[in-house]
Simulated assay, not measured.
Amino acid sequence: MMVRWSIFCCNIFLLLSFLIRGLRFMCVFRFKLWWMTQRMGTCGQDIPYETQFLIVEVRNGSNLLGRSGGAHPTALYAVFLPILEDDFRAVLQGNERNELEICLESGDPTVDKSEGRRLVFVAAGADPFDLIGNAVKTVEGHLQTFSHRERKRIPDMLNWFGWCTWDAFYTDVTAEGVKRGLESFKNGGISPKFVIIDDGWQSVGMDATSVGNYADNTANFAIRLTHIKENHKFQKNGKEDHRVDDPALGLRHIVTEIKEQHDVKYVYVWHAITGHWGGVKPDVNEMANYESKMTYPIPSPGVESNEQCDILKSIATNGLGLVNPDKAFNFYSDLHSYLASAGIDGVKVDV
């Protein structure tokens, strides 16, 4: 669908002249801030907020395709792909009249107007699998802002069995714990070829005025990054509140050991896209070069309508330490360069 649109508010709803009633559909929607799931139904009112993909089984003669039906209507499929363009993103949702709506949102009260040409891409075809693949490729060609999966190189680590430390340790992970975990696998006759050291290895701290928020007694979403390098748990003979400057005694020592003694091919570590859940702490000397400033996110109404999220409330209340956009390249370059020097092969990033 190619239409011209102008927006003069940070959130707007547009009604599509599509009625979905008695037609099977499958959609994928954002039910949490960072998680997607699927839903199936037969009525437009069953299409939830924050739907980012929709495929509908239609027939000749339906109002979706506008074709005349024969004695034996043929099943066809229509796919809807909401588009991200300029400062606004589009998502789909149904209403109580079983109509399909587009919700456009900037996510920023200061961004209240924009103009573009693309809201939702719509295509139809007889084979749903070919239809979806071709639709994504068509949008790729128009926007030229992403690559279809067929054009992406698959990391070699996906060819191997691996282990992520999260469910074993949560944020209590330590270098010794990683070694014990690999020994346990070895004793069971299994040798993971890659390891992901999840949340718990970084140097972090809370503000004096922050209110801690622990999700299922695991991650604290009120803490912020205080240093590029690892915390004492991943320094050789490390002690709390004491930093080791020798790189060989930092993260590198555990990475080297598990690669050599357990034949691990790849070691990844976790970090949030903002550094940590609470961002980068503004008032610490070690992070001053990145000029972090406190911001207070405004939750998306669509996400909140699907599920109230205490974690999102915590981040909105305690704020997020965001690196100066002009310093973002330096921040990621410094972080990833240090990790590479320690033998880390990649990162798992939560958004």
Results as ranks from 00 to 15, higher is better:
Val264Ile: 15
Val269Phe: 11
Gly238His: 08
Gly302Ser: 08
Gly250Cys: 14
Tyr290His: 12
Arg252His: 14
Lys233Met: 12
Asp283Pro: 04
Tyr268Ser: 03
Leu312Ile: 08
Ile228Pro: 06
Asn306Ala: 05
Ile228Thr: 07
Leu249Tyr: 10
Ile298Arg: 13
Lys229Leu: 13
Val255Phe: 11
Asp245Met: 10
Asp241Asn: 14
Cys309Phe: 07
Ile311Val: 15
Lys293Cys: 12
Ile315Phe: 01
Val255Arg: 09
Asp245Phe: 09
Tyr268Ile: 06
Val264Tyr: 04
Ile273Pro: 01
Asn318Leu: 13
Val255Leu: 12
Ala288Asp: 07
Glu307Asn: 11
Cys309Thr: 06
Val280Ile: 12
Val255Ile: 15
Thr274Gln: 12
Asn318Ile: 11
Lys233Glu: 11
Pro301Glu: 04
Asn289Cys: 12
Val244Ser: 01
Ala288Arg: 15
Ile228Asn: 04
Arg243Gly: 00
Glu230Thr: 13
Val280Ser: 00
Gln261Val: 00
Asp310Met: 07
His271Ile: 00
Trp277Lys: 05
His262Lys: 02
Thr317Lys: 14
Met294Cys: 05
Val267Trp: 10
His242Asn: 02
Val244Tyr: 02
Val280Lys: 08
Val267Asn: 09
Ala316Ile: 03
Gly278Asn: 03
Tyr266Asp: 04
Glu257Val: 04
His276Pro: 00
Met287Lys: 06
Lys259Leu: 06
Glu260Ala: 08
Gln308Ala: 11
Leu251Asn: 08
Asp241Met: 11
Val264Glu: 04
Ile258Cys: 07
Pro282Gly: 06
Val267Arg: 11
Asp263Glu: 10
Asn285Lys: 14
Trp277Phe: 10
Leu249Gln: 15
Met294His: 03
Gln261Thr: 00
Asp283Thr: 14
Tyr296Met: 09
Val267Lys: 13
Ile254Ala: 09
Gln308Lys: 15
Gly250Asp: 03
Glu257Trp: 13
Leu249Cys: 12
Met287Asp: 06
Asn318His: 11
Gly279Gln: 02
His227Lys: 12
Asn289Ile: 01
Cys309His: 13
Thr274Ala: 14
Gln308Glu: 12
Ile228Asp: 02
Met294Arg: 15
Ser300Tyr: 00
Thr295Met: 13
Gly302His: 00
Gln308His: 15
Glu230Gly: 02
Ala272Thr: 01
Trp270Phe: 13
Leu312Arg: 13
Trp270Ile: 08
Arg252Trp: 03
Ile273Arg: 03
Glu230Asp: 05
Thr317Asn: 13
Val244Lys: 10
Ile315Tyr: 02
Val303Leu: 06
Pro282Arg: 10
Ser305Glu: 05
Gly279Asp: 01
Ser305Thr: 03
Glu304Asn: 06
His271Asn: 14
Ser314His: 04
Asn285Val: 13
Gly250His: 05
Asp245Pro: 00
Ala316Phe: 02
Pro282Phe: 05
Val280Pro: 07
Asn318Lys: 07
Gln235Cys: 15
Ala288Gly: 00
Thr274Ser: 14
Gln235Asp: 05
Thr317Gly: 00
Asn306Ser: 06
Thr295Ile: 15
His227Met: 07
Ser292Met: 07
Val269Met: 15
Leu251Gly: 08
